[in-house]
């Protein structure tokens, strides 16, 4: 009974959930390479890897934001409409030419952040669960997009489209921006007070409140950041497609796909537990799977079947681990641990 914190060396640790995500990613990569090569097509070519990374970048932005919101104990279903809104606003402002690039980006991000702040204020102020609050806000935006814009809108000047086409050392610029955002979000979560409060509020709002945490601030900030990242995704889609589109977000299915990637990355849907690194792993797994299946021309049903199975299996694995997580006190033939 005398063993005290800090007095004993760290024991052999169980694999963290994030480590598992990346082991699975490695396995998926190897398997994909084998399958694709067996089908007589190249997998590890610069072109194909760039395609995977591009696929990652857009979902990545949305999933990073979704991670913050889910850790804080909320949920954001309005992201696809924010993506579309950002592409429309960006394209609208940029239609005037290169001079519109900076104002266009700023306007798109500001409107996105504003939508996120509204989400957060509804969740905290009106105490509506994030699922419903963002579903409602998403519906309102989608109504506005559907009635005000038919087909494409505005255009992006070539100077802006360069972002969508540039590769640096074989890596698309949009992926680099996405990874930079992931690093910033990880820093926010693990190195700042706001980050600690996100975990605390997501884990238990009443515990956080009784600890003197202002419980509303982290949730509102998480929602604002999430929508801003969705806005960024919309702008990068604009750089790639060159015209604003009112349906580009909902076509991507970013609401459910981002939640799936976050959960696949080991973040607890109930809040309070999770990491951005895991989310990036989850996004990468989806991107590799999608890429392989389109290279192999797998039929669409099988594609969705595989995606769905991966999500369910992963979450079942995490649930099983969380049951197993309590360290046993006794092992056969060993002295009792404290």
């Amino acid at each position: 009974m005398s063993a005290v914190v800090g007095a004993r060396p760290v024991r052999r640790r169980r694999l963290s959930t994030t480590a598992i995500v990346f082991i699975v990613l490695a396995a998926v990569l190897v398997l994909s390479a084998v399958l694709v090569t067996a089908a007589g097509k190249p997998f590890f070519t610069a072109g194909n890897l760039a395609a995977v990374l591009t696929l990652m970048s857009i979902l990545g932005f949305v999933a990073i934001g979704q991670t913050l919101v889910i850790i804080a104990g909320s949920l954001d279903l309005s992201v696809p409409y924010v993506v579309s809104t950002a592409s429309i606003i960006g394209a609208g402002v940029m239609a005037q030419g290169p001079a519109g690039i900076v104002p266009g980006v700023l306007a798109a991000l500001a409107v996105s952040a504003g939508i996120g702040a509204v989400n957060g204020l509804i969740v905290t102020g009106l105490r509506v669960h994030g699922f419903i609050a963002t579903l409602g806000v998403g519906l309102i935006i989608s109504g506005w997009l559907g009635t005000s814009f038919q087909g494409s809108f505005g255009s992006a000047p070539p100077e802006f489209r360069v972002i969508g086409a540039t590769l640096i050392a074989g890596v698309p610029l949009s992926t680099i921006i996405m990874l930079a955002c992931a690093a910033l979000a990880a820093l926010l979560l693990h190195r700042t007070r706001l980050g600690h409060h996100l975990y605390a509020v997501g884990g238990s709002a009443s515990v956080a409140r009784l600890s003197g945490v202002r419980t509303k601030v982290p949730v509102v900030v998480a929602h604002a950041l999430c929508s801003m990242l969705a806005g960024l995704a919309g702008l990068l889609l604009l750089a790639r497609t060159s015209v604003g589109s009112p349906t580009i977000g909902s076509q991507g299915g970013y609401d459910l796909m981002s939640i799936a990637a976050v959960v696949l990355g080991g973040t607890l849907l109930a809040g309070g537990v999770g990491s951005v690194l895991g989310t990036i792993g989850g996004v990468a797994i989806f991107a590799v799977l999608d890429n392989v299946m389109s290279v192999l021309e797998v039929n669409p049903f099988l594609k969705d079947f595989i995606r769905g199975s991966v999500i369910v299996l992963a979450v079942a694995l995490y649930a099983w681990r969380s049951v197993q997580r309590r360290p046993p006190r006794f092992r056969p033939g060993k002295e009792a641990a404290p």
């Binding site: 605390a200 009784l210 309070g272």
Partner: peptide, 13 residues
């Protein structure tokens, strides 16, 4: 458990 501690966080947190 309900109001005193964040159960999923560590001792230090």
């Amino acid at each position: 458990k309900g109001q005193g501690l964040s159960l999923s966080l560590t001792v230090a947190q």
